[in-house]
């Protein structure tokens, strides 16, 4: 074997390989070609097998050529592989294309009832103010629901609470959460800050703004120097937390037998912001809750000395708060449990 022949063979292999590479349709044929040419038993190895027949002096020369050819082929294969691989990936990606505009697979989403959520939200806000939650029974006795709250039997103020009575003598369904004031005063010692949420009942025909069953949240704060100014300051903070910072508020006189003085607490109309609109009865204000300084008789019935301790109580309807926040116009929706309504609160 002559040097020239062997060198020629190597060049031929390089050329043929280049042609084959150019015609390789895909990465797989490229892989096959690589094995065929550069593999252990490949054609390059086959050509080089002739090296042994060369004179010793010529061998390095062939080696150099062989190395150049090998490097060249390897580079070409790598280059070709990159091209083919990218094309193949492109093809695969193209084949895998889907219509991404189609909607997703639906998750079930639940919802929290707006009455309860509003009640819990009120509790969370007052919790930040140091109020603890206390619950008491819904089946109350007349004594706690009325008499110990300074509402004697046959008192005209009873007109404020149309009552549902039950077949347990002397018992009724609590008309408000106010009896909780007494339960709290009887179980906690001042300083008291307590929040009393729960279900209440009234003998009241059901319409857009009245219900026979509804929730209420009562709050009570008692200490030696708790004043009406504290009540106003606290309620202002609550109004800001619930309805937005900077909302204007006002006190106006109210009437409850168990508070003296009694007030109604208004916040500026959430719809019109003050000028007056149908939502606020053109007054510019919306009533949020009733409150007042706890009547001395109630403090005494709660076991506290009215000369030493003073404090305030307030009560609000979470449904009412929810109606104001979510612009709900009909109270009946809260107990109808129509999922088309409930599903709006997530």
């Amino acid at each position: 074997m002559e040097l020239a022949q062997l060198t020629q063979d190597l060049e031929t292999l390089a050329a043929e390989t280049a042609t084959a590479l150019a015609g390789a349709p895909d990465v797989a044929s490229l892989d096959a070609l690589e094995v065929d040419v550069l593999g252990k038993k490949g054609r390059l190895t086959g050509v080089l097998r002739g090296i042994g027949a060369l004179p010793v002096d010529d061998r390095p020369k062939v080696g150099a050529v062989a190395n150049r050819v090998r490097a060249g082929i390897e580079a070409e294969i790598a280059e070709r592989r990159a091209v083919l691989g990218s094309a193949e990936l492109d093809a695969r990606l193209a084949a895998e294309t889907i219509d991404v505009t189609m909607p997703g697979r639906p998750f079930r989403h639940g919802s929290l009832h707006p009455s309860i959520e509003s009640m819990f939200e009120i509790a969370r806000i007052f919790g930040q103010f140091g109020f603890v939650v206390h619950e008491s029974p819904e089946i109350e006795d007349d004594l706690t629901n009325f008499q110990d709250l300074n509402i004697p039997p046959d008192h005209p103020a009873r007109d404020l609470w149309d009552t549902l009575y039950v077949d347990i003598p002397g018992h009724l369904l609590r008309t408000h959460t106010s009896p909780g004031q007494l339960h709290v005063m009887r179980t906690m010692q001042p300083p008291i800050r307590a929040l009393l949420p729960g279900r209440c009942f009234r003998y009241e025909a059901i319409d857009a703004s009245h219900g026979s069953e509804f929730f209420q949240v009562e709050g009570i704060m008692v200490d030696e120097g708790t004043t009406m100014g504290d009540l106003r300051g606290l309620l202002d903070e609550f109004a800001h937390a619930m309805f937005g910072a900077g909302k204007r508020t006002r006190f106006r006189p109210g009437y409850y037998p168990f508070t003296e003085p009694s007030v109604a607490f208004d916040v500026e109309c959430l719809v019109c912001g003050g000028p007056g609109c149908p939502a606020c009865g053109r007054s510019g204000w919306m009533t949020i809750l009733g409150a007042g300084m706890i009547h001395p008789v109630v403090l005494r019935r709660g076991g506290l000395d009215p000369e030493r301790y003073q404090g305030f109580a307030f009560g609000m309807g979470p449904e009412r708060i929810s109606m104001l926040r979510h612009r709900i116009t009909d109270l009946r929706l809260f107990l109808e449990n129509d999922v088309r309504f409930l599903g709006q609160f997530r």
Binding site: P191, R193, M221, G225, G229, D230, G233, L234
Partner: peptide
């Protein structure tokens, strides 16, 4: 109005 400054329960 003032924010209550009585003892925390």
């Amino acid at each position: 109005p003032r924010r209550p400054s009585t003892q925390m329960p």
